[in-house]
Simulated scan of single mutants.
Amino acid sequence: MDVIELLESASLLVPEEAATANDLTVRDVWDHLVHDEWEIALGLLQELGDVRSLPLSFWEALAEAADRLLLKRSASWCHWRCSEFRHGVIRADLTLRSGGGVRRTTPIPGAGVLRPMWDIGHLSPSGGRAVSVAALWVEHLPVLPPGGRATVRLVPLTPSHWTHVQPGRRINMHEDRTVAGTAVVLEARPPEATVSAG
């Protein structure tokens, strides 16, 4: 499929009544596609996908279109959403530590490249702390500086480790033995495949 076919196929998966915060709908997407405004159409489809739960095939088509258009951040976001579909997602309010005793002195990249360890309450066989890995995406910011605070999205590497994590739970982020940040869980969703199979 070429780019326009990918965008058209994705737009067919969006219900007509779905609208963005600015009341833009799939009809607006089609208007941009007719005028070969592919980047704008892609952006609108991403917004529509963020306000409504859409199938994995929607995000896969957008990811491929963004890759072909060489739109790195859009492509990263669409691939990220595919990962959320497959592995689940935890949204949390994260505050990074700053100052003495913290290894990180540079901002965390926001586009899902960091995969820190998280203390989510598991113990090792010897009774010590066991951590679980989850990739991190900072919402609405390109980076999160030390001492900064933002809503983040976590995609667990091993979703079964995270089934007990519920909204309100406090979890700690680690890049080494020290606590690099503390987060309060806002939302916890299992993998979509698990939900649809159940």
Rank of each mutant, 00 (worst) to 15 (best):
V51H: 05
R103Q: 12
V34K: 01
E60C: 10
V51W: 02
P191N: 12
G99D: 02
D23Q: 09
V3S: 11
L13K: 08
I108P: 07
S196P: 00
A130Q: 07
M173Q: 11
D23H: 03
L154I: 12
E139I: 07
L45D: 01
D119Y: 01
G168Q: 11
V143K: 09
G100R: 11
L13S: 09
T95I: 04
R115I: 05
A41G: 09
I90Y: 08
V155T: 15
A197C: 03
P167R: 06
V29C: 01
L13G: 05
V143E: 09
R177G: 08
D50C: 04
S57L: 07
V143G: 04
M1V: 14
D31Y: 05
D28S: 04
P145L: 14
S57Q: 12
L70H: 07
G100L: 10
W38Q: 05
R149E: 06
R91I: 15
L33Q: 08
H79W: 02
S76V: 15
V184E: 10
G128S: 12
L24R: 07
T25Q: 01
G121Y: 14
E192H: 09
V26K: 02
A61G: 11
M1G: 10
L6D: 10
I171G: 01
E17K: 08
L141Q: 12
R52A: 15
H122F: 06
N22W: 11
R104W: 06
A130W: 00
L48Q: 00
R27D: 09
V29Y: 00
A130S: 15
L48H: 00
L54K: 05
S76E: 13
S160Q: 04
V34A: 12
G100V: 07
R68S: 05
A75L: 12
A180R: 04
L123I: 04
I40T: 04
A41M: 03
I40V: 10
I90W: 03
L56P: 10
P145V: 04
G198C: 05
R91N: 13
R189V: 15
H87K: 12
T95W: 00
R129F: 00
G181A: 10
M117W: 08
F58H: 14
R169L: 02
E64A: 14
D93N: 02
A65W: 01
L54S: 15
V102Q: 00
A150P: 13
D23L: 12
S76H: 13
Q46I: 09
A183E: 08
L56T: 03
A66Q: 14
D67C: 03
L42A: 11
H164T: 09
G100C: 06
E8Y: 07
G128R: 08
T25G: 04
P125D: 00
P146F: 01
W137C: 08
V165G: 15
G110Y: 07
T182R: 15
A63Q: 13
L56A: 04
S11D: 06
T182D: 15
S132C: 10
A111P: 02
L7T: 12
A197V: 08
V29G: 00
T106H: 02
V34Y: 01
